[in-house]
Simulated assay, not measured.
Amino acid sequence: MLTIWGRKNSSNVMPVLWTADELGLTYDHKMVGGSFGGINTDTFKAMNPNMRVPVLQDGDFTLYESNAIVRHLARAHGQGSLLPDNLKEQAHADQWLDWHKTTLTGPMIDLFWRTVRCEPDQRNPDLIAQAKVATEKALALLDAHLAGRSFMVMDRLTIADIPLGTLIYRYYNIQVDHQDFKNIKAWYARLQDRPAYRKNVMIPFGTTLAEWDKLERSLV
């Protein structure tokens, strides 16, 4: 039995749960981290000394880091579906998983924390604007890549779409003006057609820190 550790409103846990459900895997989900606690324990530290989620357990095999888990699940259970058969297409999928971490995640999370995870009277408009500019600079590259494409690498969903698709939901649900990225919007609409995306990614997070905390505590 697979066990996935991590609160389901975490942008790092979402790709793992989404991947597992796309693959039709049976797993036990442990809600830890954030307001659920449970990561500052000897048991959890033994699995991940960084004390961060997600963590995957598969028998005596343990793995942390979200994109590593996504890759592992696809290699173990999604060869020819979420993981392309062709080595060059696999390489391109890996490229976009790395791009997600090196280029988009930093500014996107900065924008998220300066808006949703910050009370209105503590928000700095200049820093929000800077984070938005940096986020949309990266998204412009993504939009250009998606021109003429249904998904990131192939004509179907692969691991390349999953971490990026998680951040795109956050971008479009933060209360800022959004650029008109036509190709991203079309891709985002295709993602929303997928039950596993709606279940694991489209989780309301509110517009303030108080709303975030209340919604997190309501998760089961």
Rank of each mutant, 00 (worst) to 15 (best):
Leu2His: 00
Gly6Pro: 12
Gly6Glu: 12
Gly6His: 06
Val13Asp: 03
Leu17Ile: 07
Ala20Lys: 04
Glu22Tyr: 02
Leu23Ala: 01
Tyr27Phe: 09
Val32Ile: 15
Gly34Asn: 12
Ser35Met: 05
Phe36Tyr: 03
Gly38Gln: 03
Asn48Val: 02
Asn50Met: 14
Met51His: 09
Arg52His: 12
Leu56Pro: 06
Leu56Asp: 04
Tyr64Trp: 14
Glu65Ala: 02
Val70Ile: 13
His72Cys: 13
His77Asp: 00
Leu87Gln: 13
Leu87Asp: 14
Lys88Gly: 04
Glu89Leu: 14
Ala91Phe: 07
Gln95Trp: 07
Leu97His: 03
Trp99Asn: 09
His100Val: 05
Thr102Pro: 02
Thr102Ser: 14
Met108Leu: 15
Met108His: 07
Phe112Lys: 01
Thr115Val: 10
Val116Gly: 02
Pro125Lys: 09
Asp126Phe: 02
Leu127Pro: 04
Thr135Arg: 01
Leu142Tyr: 06
Ala144Tyr: 03
Leu146Ala: 04
Ala147Cys: 14
Ser150Trp: 06
Phe151Leu: 07
Met152Gln: 00
Val153Lys: 03
Ile159Gly: 04
Ala160Val: 12
Asp161Ser: 08
Gly165Asp: 12
Tyr172Met: 15
Asn173Thr: 12
Asn173Ser: 08
Val176Thr: 09
Lys182Ile: 14
Lys185Phe: 08
Arg190Trp: 07
Arg190Asn: 09
Arg198Thr: 15
Lys199Gly: 11
Val201Ala: 00
Ile203Gly: 02
Thr207Gln: 13
Thr208Met: 14
Arg217Ile: 14
Ser218Asn: 15
Leu219Pro: 05
